[in-house]
Design a protein around this nucleic acid. Sequence first.
DNA 1: GCCTACATGTAAATAGTTACATGATTGA
DNA 2: TCAATCATGTAACTATTTACATGTAGGC
Lengths: 200, 200
Amino acid sequence: MLKLAILGLLKEKPMHGYELKKKLSYLLGSFWTVSYGSLYPALKKMEKAKEIECAYSVKEKTRNRIVYRITPKGEREFIKLLSDVRPDSSLSDTEKFDVRMAFFQYLDPETRILVLEKRRRILQDQIAKFKKYRSLNKGQDRYQKGLFRHKLEQIKSDMKWLERLIDQEKQAMTVTESDTNPPELLKDEGKGEITAATGA
Amino acid sequence: MLKLAILGLLKEKPMHGYELKKKLSYLLGSFWTVSYGSLYPALKKMEKAKEIECAYSVKEKTRNRIVYRITPKGEREFIKLLSDVRPDSSLSDTEKFDVRMAFFQYLDPETRILVLEKRRRILQDQIAKFKKYRSLNKGQDRYQKGLFRHKLEQIKSDMKWLERLIDQEKQAMTVTESDTNPPELLKDEGKGEITAATGA
DNA sequence: GCCTACATGTAAATAGTTACATGATTGA
DNA sequence: TCAATCATGTAACTATTTACATGTAGGC
């Protein structure tokens, strides 16, 4: 997950560790705080794997910074991690999905829909599970009941948001399909991107 | 977190590993799936620490089950984990909070309020951070923007829920205080060690 | 005869944390 | 001068997962 986030941020522009940390804490801060103890080793590891490389380093007296940039191999790895529609194991899927969403612009439309629909299936399963548990477990205490009701509401709200997104993607697809059919999104940067969103 | 959940479930009634796993996947399934590979070692470790003990084991031919029950030491550990209002490190705080909420009934009213208010502060910080990021980062792509808007809405909804809970707790407190003042929630187990939390 | 559920466990790997170590620069 | 911020890193630890190993019982 950290790897995905690093690659995604380095796609924007080359950065050094400290800068990445700050960006990460803004981008993912609501559900995740990265520590230097995981960031720097991750950078080293990725450099070794040639997914990123040193763009340049500054060593003015002591102020030394190592500025990394993403490599072609890193770009491929990024897209692979971002797509990731494997059979799933449903770990803390929510947070993983959120990280993916933050870089959704880099994914091609077809895969976007696949990822969104996979997420929808997971949410649907969760709702079903909730309801089953609730019907089995009548004697719950009021805190559990309250928590469950609130969680269910949130998942439903997630669901609505997801469905709106899926609709938007599908509409954009049919528009660009009848027009032209270029998978131009995996170049170094998206350009005009899909037609400006509907009522967003 | 797993430990907290196990202790909380064993408070209800003695259970064996397989049964615990099923209960856990219902109780926390929306954001967490426990594997046997973590459950069984955790049970062994807790048994060694005398936080749980074997109530009885069944070994009919092969169908062997080890039914655990919580010990007094485990009860104390449970309350300690459940209260846990330390300076915080804001890891994936949301999920930790949810697990706590699932067992809130076992906490005394004062600590309940402390836990809820700590959570409120965390959410407030997140909202502030979100807004700061949004004002700094005008050129965001539409997916990030959409994600952020949705996340912010969810946090605000969490906030409302929290505040309702806090109000309820405070009301209940004043009522029971003017009425009678029985800390009956921790009956058979120690009640002395919890009260210390207030000033800290 | 095969698949699912029951039931317990281990070993290796993964992903991350905390605490520590270093040292310069900037501003109150 | 003191604290905060910049900047990089290591070592030990924690918690958890995946994949494996084992074997029975019951239903289709």
